[in-house]
Simulated assay, not measured.
Amino acid sequence: METIKNAANYVSESIQGAGATASKEGNKNVAKDSNASLSTRAQAAGDAVSDKFDEQAHNRKADVHNEAAKH
């Protein structure tokens, strides 16, 4: 039963990590857009940094759940 829970948590964290990656990339593109206002670009850059932390956290959790599911 624990293996099933760990596998489900692995999938969930992987999906959340992918979402954070997509958000990060979108924010990076806005931050680089010379047609956007400075405040918009600065906010997008800050959001991209936050998304990067979220991405890494979800990926670490997914790895932990994946390893736990193997045992």
Rank of each mutant, 00 (worst) to 15 (best):
D47H: 05
G19W: 02
D33L: 04
N29Y: 10
V49A: 12
N6K: 11
A48E: 00
K61P: 00
G19F: 04
S39D: 12
M1F: 13
A57E: 07
I4A: 12
K5I: 15
G19V: 05
A22C: 06
I4D: 14
E55C: 02
A48K: 01
D51I: 09
A69P: 00
R41I: 00
I4L: 14
V30H: 01
H65Q: 09
Q43L: 02
K5V: 15
V11L: 06
D54W: 07
S37C: 02
T3L: 09
S23M: 10
Q16N: 12
E2H: 12
A69Q: 09
D63H: 09
N35I: 06
Y10T: 07
R60N: 14
E13N: 14
Q43M: 04
R60C: 09
A62N: 05
T21C: 07
N29I: 04
A45Y: 11
A31H: 04
I15Y: 15
V30F: 04
K24G: 10
A57P: 00
Q56C: 03
E2A: 14
S23G: 10
A8S: 11
A36L: 04
A7D: 12
S39Y: 07
S34A: 11
A48F: 05
H65M: 09
S23I: 10
I4V: 14
A18K: 07
A48I: 02
K61W: 11
E13G: 04
S37N: 03
A57R: 09
E55W: 01
K52I: 02
S37K: 00
N66F: 15
D63C: 13
H65F: 14
I4W: 13
N9R: 14
A7F: 12
R41D: 00
H71W: 13
V11P: 11
A7Q: 12
S23L: 09
M1K: 14
A31Q: 01
Q43E: 05
A69G: 08
D51G: 06
A20I: 03
A68I: 08
K5W: 14
Q16V: 03
S14L: 05
V30N: 01
D63Y: 10
S50A: 13
G19I: 06
K28R: 12
D54G: 07
Q16R: 14
E25M: 06
R41G: 01
Q16E: 12
D47S: 05
N6F: 13
S37Y: 00
S12M: 11
L38Q: 06
E13P: 01
V49P: 03
F53D: 13
K70F: 02
G17Q: 05
E55Y: 01
T21R: 12
A36V: 04
A48C: 05
A57Y: 11
A48R: 01
R41L: 00
T3G: 11
S39W: 06
N6T: 08
Q16F: 05
S37A: 00
F53K: 14
A62V: 08
E55T: 02
A68C: 08
K32H: 09
T3P: 07
G46S: 08
K70P: 04
D47Q: 06
K70R: 11
K32I: 02
N59G: 08
